[in-house]
Simulated assay, not measured.
Amino acid sequence: MAAQTETKPSNKKYIFEIHFLRAFACLLVVGVHVSATHYGMNDETWNWFTYFLNQYGRFGTTIFAVISGFLLFYQVKRRGFELGRFLQSRFSKIVIPFLIWSVAYRYLLFHYDKQTLGDPGAEITKILTGDSFYHLYFVAIVVQFYIIFPFLQKIFRTQTLLLIFTFVSLIISYQLYGFHPDIDGALGEFLASKSFMPIWIFYFAFGGFMAYFWEEIVAFATKRPWKMLGVILLISAGAVFEYQTKGYVSNRRLTNLVNIPALCIAVVGIYPFLSKLNIVKKTLTVIGQYSMGIYLIHPMILYLFARHLPETYWQAEYVPLMFLAVMVIASVFIRILQFIPLSGFIIPVPKIKNNKRKPAVQPEHKASA
């Protein structure tokens, strides 16, 4: 992918700030599931650290929704929209891996938990609603957004229209909080479930807002890294206060309608500061690049851990080590998988080019769309 100078940000193909945000979201999601697995294996008890990891990490999935919206709208802003290319790209990079991993997790449950397979209709419903395993619902949400995106991008093509879309989406997500339709059967269950995409529409829309106001957001946030760090700490303190006073919270809580936009902008703002630390930058670059693969595979690693690791390792002091082990195993697996032909249909991994042949170009603000 060709690099562009910072004076032409609308033509950039790789924005490392978003990549950094994706790594941040990935770490949060893994934290949720590591702590939840520990909770289930340890007589269902929390300590302060595992409870924090689980509750704070619930920002992660919602941030992924913002990133999904950003990448789609950013591509339209930069290159326009071609329906054929869009369908081919999304089908090969998202839908096929989603189907493959849905089948893999159904087999895992069938093999280990002796779960019987339902009739074909029931199994197809499980897959389409992301009910094959606990984390796949979010991929089903993203696929639903893909269905309406060709219509959205045709309507909301300017900054003003994106502002309107974001505001309307905020109202929709707010109104659908705790939505329980008076409909029986599978349809009613789906509409009331976390897999129902309109509940999440604001976060996709805010991603579009970031895409169309990207230059302004970067100029504002990256010039104030310490203030952005302060925003992150303030949101973090508020999140701790919320779950300490209200108890267990979900990733669809109303406070996220404020927290997630502020957190996304603030994380983007501290990227230039953290990128000066080479080891941090390289680590987060790999995590961001492998984030979808890590998202898809890490519950399987935890599932196998839960069935094969001795009880000794399910103590709170081993949680950080387990977190690290999951990240390393997932990353190594993805790296090895890349040597297999057509592995992109199993786990898509975006390519990163440093463009070393053009020393005058500053790659610091590039990132993949």
Rank of each mutant, 00 (worst) to 15 (best):
L109E: 04
Y212S: 07
R253S: 15
T50H: 05
H308C: 08
F323C: 11
N256K: 00
M41D: 03
H38V: 15
Y174C: 14
M1I: 02
I18D: 05
I172K: 00
P310M: 05
L28D: 01
V66W: 00
I164L: 12
L83Y: 08
I67H: 03
S173H: 08
V95K: 01
L161I: 11
V258R: 03
T50W: 07
T158Y: 04
L296T: 09
W48H: 06
S368I: 12
A325K: 02
F81M: 09
G208R: 08
I260Q: 05
W226T: 14
P350T: 06
G80N: 05
F86S: 09
Y203F: 15
L229N: 01
V168P: 03
F202C: 10
V268C: 01
L109A: 13
T50Y: 10
A367F: 07
S291Y: 02
L71F: 00
F86N: 01
I232R: 00
L302T: 14
F167S: 15
I18E: 06
V280S: 06
F133E: 07
I260E: 05
F220K: 14
T222V: 08
I301A: 04
Q144K: 01
R253P: 12
G238Q: 02
F133G: 02
E216K: 12
N42T: 15
N354Y: 10
Q88R: 06
P359T: 00
L136Q: 03
